[in-house]
Design a protein around this nucleic acid. Structure first.
Lengths: 329, 329
DNA sequence: GATGAAAATGTAATCGATTACATTTTGAAA
DNA sequence: TTTCAAAATGTAATCGATTACATTTTCATC
């Protein structure tokens, strides 16, 4: 494994010149450049990023914090982040926190130890205090999730409006008894989605039935099954369910079928996120599509700008209601 | 951001002593140690991994190559790798190749440029020649997938036997007309799984029907739908399908239902991998469970051993047939 | 051929840690 | 108190790049 000194020696030039060739600087004669390139070829030289990174005080790595890799919600966002990052010569380190502070801390430490240049957080459970503190000294962007009152730049969609539109759709196709399967309201987006739900009902003069709202600790399949089980046992059973994640909705689907009922004839179901799998279920799921890929690229762009010291502003993106069989048959 | 010099100065000792405290060496007096720790605290010092990594000629990062992040098959393996890696103070960089040589090359370059200490490859489409070449100079382990004839250590299961057992199960519950939905036979595991399929048939005296075997380019949901569509149009329609991935099987499920047929009454379905979703379908999928998490930890262990210069041997792990509703109703 | 500004190249410091080797301190034994 | 091995600490080289500044080369102009 050759280093820059050996290349310089072999090419009969100084290390500065080799470095100039490496970094495509223009002040190098064509002849010199060729000599250097031959030496590089001959010695099979690859510049070490360890040396470069130390000298430049950067790692060219960005951290992407997610609660779990198993949630398909993050796929497209991650792809967006990754492609943008790669195009700017950054690599991304995917960090599964399992929503545990201990694991978060491991990755925060990577930042503190200069092993990473910044963080894109998609973890709603993230330790807000620590994040705020870190944001004072390091580049941090929140993507899709964001806490209120922090001056950390974020990119997200209008959750309240999206929720409103989903419920509105159910009302428009004739539903009055609509259940909301929400996540814990310690999360801002959960509160926003409940508000959208309430606004849609109110607007149509439908009274709010508190029994129709359930809260789950996580947004997974099993939680959807459990919540649906309870809903099915209600005295005045709803005819529609709006779940704030596709996985919840898919759990609901399975439970409804297990009870011998039909979707959407007996109960209509709407999910949220448009994960790949939402199209694979039977029936295919009506759901709210967030512009995930775009969200990813924008978040990455924002982060890299921030790393480079530019000022960045938060962004709110549009969304789309994708109507499929689980509401229209 | 303080550095080690400043800590040394503030504590009134040399950088060597600070380094010793940092690395928990025993040759430091309790009193000196305390002085250093106070200085660290006071200056809010965090050792830079950039300096350390250059000096130690390591990056403490390992690359994990996968074709796509969307395939749930990799989740548990990745978790296994990650936990083992973290316990040894390594971080993992998840590399999506999209099965494209250009993207592979980006990550191979990270290795050449010392930005990574080794690679765990789970990409069957990986450029075999390049991988072989790299393996001469760098630590590389193949996980779950492996090409024949290479001396790159791998961890995997006995695909032939797993396939044999899956088909055997179908035969035992009364099926004779069993279709195989296989992946492209350029992959070793695909050839092995066909062999297991054939062995099971042969053993029971069932003649091989070439029309019952289909090949798909990818292992996704859509490919499963397409392949199933063709199978449903066969003159002598099979009563069972063995798909070499759960996503293929889930595609088949949906297609069978779309044709108005019942699973397993009309057609039984067996998948492979036991991804989370295989339990969320209707009916739940009978499938072959690989010990994914364990596979991940072992692969990571092997890689780290290899990085440290130890000799490592390939490992073949056991598997388990998980019988659920899609075959037994 | 002499001149001198511009272009090309070189020298050496620097980034922040680790560690071999050198030096100083400690403290038990004489 | 002296002695001296062991323990503690310090000095300075090192990892491999980048780059400010210094020096040399080039070449158009007179």
């Amino acid at each position: 494994m050759a280093n820059i000194q050996q290349v310089a020696k072999h090419a009969g030039v100084s290390v500065a010149t080799v470095s100039r060739v490496l970094n495509g600087q223009t002040t190098v004669t064509a002849k010199t450049k060729q000599k250097v390139e031959e030496a590089i070829q001959y010695l099979n030289y690859e510049p070490s990023m360890l040396g470069r990174n130390l000298r430049n005080s950067e790692s060219r790595i960005v951290l992407v914090l997610i609660p779990t890799i198993s949630n398909p919600f993050y796929f497209e966002i991650i792809k967006g982040i990754e492609n943008m990052a790669l195009s700017q010569n950054y690599s991304i380190l995917l960090c599964e926190t399992d929503s545990k502070p201990e694991k978060e801390e491991i990755y925060f430490d990577l930042l503190r130890k200069k092993m990473a240049d910044g963080i894109i957080s998609m973890d709603p459970a993230v330790n807000v205090e620590t994040l705020k503190e870190l944001a004072e000294n390091y580049a941090i962007i929140q993507c899709s999730e964001y806490g209120g009152g922090m001056d950390i730049p974020y990119v997200t969609i209008d959750s309240e409006e999206a929720s409103y539109r989903a419920v509105k759709h159910l009302i428009q196709i004739g539903h009055q008894k609509i259940a909301l399967m929400n996540s814990d309201e310690k999360f801002l987006y959960a509160r926003e989605r409940r508000m959208g739900y309430e606004r849609a009902l109110q607007e149509s003069g439908i009274p709010l039935n508190k029994n129709y709202i359930s809260y789950t600790q996580e947004l997974g399949f099993e939680q959807g099954q459990l919540a649906m089980k309870k809903i099915l046992h209600l005295d005045d059973r709803p005819t529609a369910v709006f779940a704030v994640s596709d996985l919840l909705a898919i759990g609901a689907l399975k439970e409804i079928k297990a009870a011998g009922l039909q979707v959407p004839q007996d109960i209509a179901v709407v999910g949220f996120d448009k994960i790949d799998f939402s199209n694979m279920t039977n029936p295919a799921l009506t759901t709210v599509a967030q512009p995930m890929y775009k969200m990813g690229t924008i978040a990455a762009r924002m982060l890299i700008d921030k790393i480079r010291g530019k000022a960045v502003d938060s962004v709110v993106l549009g969304f789309e209601l994708v109507i499929r069989e689980s509401t229209t048959g």
